[in-house]
């Protein structure tokens, strides 16, 4: 520090306590709207196939991030709500660095028939076993309760 005098009494520093009101309405967008309406009404996932590189983009998108080309209408495809575990961890802390009630398995799931994956909560007990590659399927909320958001996916469960 470059100042001549510093605070040395720990009770003397004062502050103003502020906060931030920040509420947003995030549009799903053209592709997202279609993806979530389909999830709500049909209980399946939608993906899109890039006309140039043939990658199956998931969740469905309007453009391919590799080729920067738009996806034509007939390249929308329905894919199952199942896949395999690509990455996972057992998380113990919440956003305020407080312990979670119980360890939560956060996982990235490679969705079957696509080149993409989706974040999900895996319904498994904590284990030292390697869960990579484990086949799983999405547990969706009952049709009547679905609202067309990620909350319609309750969790992913190991396939039986």
């Amino acid at each position: 520090m470059t100042f001549l005098e510093k605070q040395t009494d720990p009770t003397s520093p004062m502050h103003w306590r502020g906060d931030m009101q920040a509420d947003y309405l995030y549009p799903n967008g053209w592709a997202g709207d279609r993806f979530f309406k389909n999830l709500r009404d049909k209980g399946t996932f939608l993906a899109t196939r890039c006309p140039k590189c043939s990658k199956v983009l998931f969740p469905a998108r309007l453009y391919c991030e590799d080729c920067f080309v738009e996806i034509p209408e007939n390249n929308w495809i329905e894919v199952p709500t199942s896949g395999i575990v690509r990455l996972y961890t057992f998380a113990k802390l919440d956003a305020h660095w407080e312990p979670l009630e119980k360890p939560r398995c956060m996982a990235l799931i490679d969705i079957e028939g696509t080149d993409g994956s989706i974040l999900g909560v895996l319904d498994v007990e904590e284990t030292d076993e390697d869960l990579t590659g484990l086949p799983v399927e999405a547990l969706l909320r009952p049709v009547k309760e679905r609202e067309g958001t990620m909350k319609d996916i309750v969790c992913f469960k190991p396939s039986v």
């Binding site: 961890t89 998380a91 956003a95 956060m106």
Partner: peptide, 24 residues
């Protein structure tokens, strides 16, 4: 929330995932 969870997981879970991947 669709689940009975009351807490939001800390975003460092992403580092845990990536570490698991790196080790494997």
């Amino acid at each position: 929330g669709a689940t009975d969870e009351k807490q939001r997981v800390h975003p460092y879970f992403l580092a845990g995932m990536e570490m698991q991947h790196y080790l494997r």
